[in-house]
Amino acid sequence: MAINTKYELKLGAATREAFGKALVELGRTNPNIVALDADLSKSTMTVGFQKEFPERFFECGIAEANMAAIAAGLASAGKIPFASSFSAFMLNKGFEQLRVTAAFPRVNVKVVGTHSGISIGEDGPSQMSVEDLSLACSLAGFTVLSPADEVSMVALVKQAAAMFGPVFIRAGRIKCPLIYAADQTFTIGKAIELVSGTDVTLIATGLLVAESIKAAEALEAEGISAAVLDIHTIKPLDREAIAKAAQKTRALVVSEEHLVDSGLGVRVAQIVSETTPAAMEFVGVVDTYAESGAPDELLDKYGLRAVNVVAAAKRALARKKAGS
């Protein structure tokens, strides 16, 4: 297997911790950065910013709708607000406000949803967000980011602050494998090919990127050459990279910690159907809400593991072969 990154998958920080760190660093260099939270600052990790810049931190209490629109007001008056909560609350409770006060007038708001997906674990499905990418992508004009590890999160949070326009950033609760070296460069809207391969392309976002790298290793052991693409930007999606992968391997697996029928997979399928036909398989949460349990147990039970990506790759390859 040709691995384009030199790095082993050792455990790094949670992406929410990386967000908190990046926010503090941004606060030190740009006085216009402000932060808002809805009584979850110790969980979303905005607490570090709050400690260092109390005058620029706005605790909104448990009122996400109000928080979203206050953030829009701050942005309209020249600030660069980062509003954060659990992804499930930020988008579901703040959606209408994000639509009317942020997306529609296209203000410079940054929205961060932490504890996304089912890997939040024991708290259970009311706190889990399996539809946040879908909701964020349906906010016209929003840029939607879903970094896979701490290095990409720090870099992309800073890029989100540097660009003008509304951005949603998806973060997770649990510590996750470190994929990138500190000197890796990222560009919003440009996918990263982590592993090169010729038989099948494993496209993934968030936690499923590391699982897809492990899947590529397992496939290689069986003589199957799998490429891995990290889609850290869900919108705008890297059309060129996806079309190229479809053309090159003619078999794709899209994996995400999200409902399969409304997340990254369907958006990739749209590009594939418009460009180069390919056999496609999808790994994700299938039309259900999960349950309480340890994160690892849940990822196993709901089929979001390397083994599931491997099985999906084999199904895609079988169809590719049958079709050729």
């Binding site: 709708a65 109000n66 206050i70 829009a72 007001g73 701050l74 008056a77 600030k79």
Partner: peptide, 12 residues
Amino acid sequence: SLAIGMALAAKL
């Protein structure tokens, strides 16, 4: 809410 955001920015 929007007004509060603008007013907070003015105070800052």
